[in-house]
Design a protein around this nucleic acid. Sequence first.
DNA 1: GTCTATACAAGGATAGAC
DNA 2: GTCTATCCTTGTATAGAC
Lengths: 216, 216
Amino acid sequence: MSTEPRKYKPGKIREHNSQKILEAAECEFVKHGYKGTSMQSIADAAELPKANVHYYFKSKAKLYNAVLGDILQRWNEVLADMSEEGDPAETLENYIRAKVDLSIRFPQASKIFATEIIQGAPNLKEHIRTDLRHWVRSKTKIIESWIDQGKMTPVDPEHLIFMIWSTTQHYADFETQVLTITNKLEYEQEDVKKISDFLCHMILTGCGLKPTTSLA
Amino acid sequence: MSTEPRKYKPGKIREHNSQKILEAAECEFVKHGYKGTSMQSIADAAELPKANVHYYFKSKAKLYNAVLGDILQRWNEVLADMSEEGDPAETLENYIRAKVDLSIRFPQASKIFATEIIQGAPNLKEHIRTDLRHWVRSKTKIIESWIDQGKMTPVDPEHLIFMIWSTTQHYADFETQVLTITNKLEYEQEDVKKISDFLCHMILTGCGLKPTTSLA
DNA sequence: GTCTATACAAGGATAGAC
DNA sequence: GTCTATCCTTGTATAGAC
């Protein structure tokens, strides 16, 4: 009877539940870290029995790695297409704005990534040593070529990248501190613009470049 | 017999053990977060029985708060004496160098502080809302007065402070990532100088100021 | 595919011997 | 003051009913 006219397609429920679990897990891992998070609390947040979480993700470690994978994927969408022929000011500004945007929109992702690295990157060390290092190498080469072409002030390209990462991600990771100090409940559109404009001004000026937007 | 000629003064052992526990706890809390750290692992790291840790610090929560207190105290040693009459370039440069120095020397303190804020600052919200906010207010006033005096470019003082915090603390919190990408095992003296020089150049230039040290 | 019931280990905390 | 033995809770994981 109830087996013939299915309300949902076979994989539909699975997909839906998996997604709910992943979102709940992301939220819990942010608040208590990997070891500090229990499968029970994830199940509660996902409104599913604990055994269900195990059924879908086998173990806590596998679930955590699934969450990390999701985050890295989102991260990789902002890979900044730089080229030696491109304009440094425009390229850097685009990258900074994209990173700020990502930090404001997905602070949780940034927070889990940060926690993972703070704790010594036990699950990401390989990714950093290979993928991320290569990405940085390719970008520093382009920045060096810009410098050789006299397009910008000679600054250390690696530290420039670290500066962009640290300043943009700060608004996600230290969200609580920033909002509390500025006496706000959440970021507004104008805050995002102000932050991006400020960071573009500071970083581009430091590189001897002229930001397209001036400060208020 | 053994009660008369004491080898150590009464409070001596207590002080020594407390210190050992605090150091061990700091180390464990960095690696696994508050909830993820067990009293057993702290006791093991301090080379004492578990019950001893409870004897000295009553509960895990109290021990964690003791660790946080220690960190805040160290933090407050770098309060940067700014004044409206002072020189912006010199003042900012001193502050940046002091912060980099602290990050390199005590990365663990920075990491615990970062983890605490990432998780929503459950134990530090009050401190941020009162002490830290007041500190920031007093500094922004001074920076604003520098701007009014035409001593520097008009940039948002709050975001300037956030930039100094984020860029300097990055070298502590994201130590693992920075070292892995730059293919190093640990920071060397010349790295510290390079980082400080770079940050001073970028931040001061962005403020329309001239760093005392030029880039290589 | 879903969930209840349960096995078994680990964690926080304390009583009480030394 | 120090530490062993123990209590009770919570955690991960799974077996087996539905």
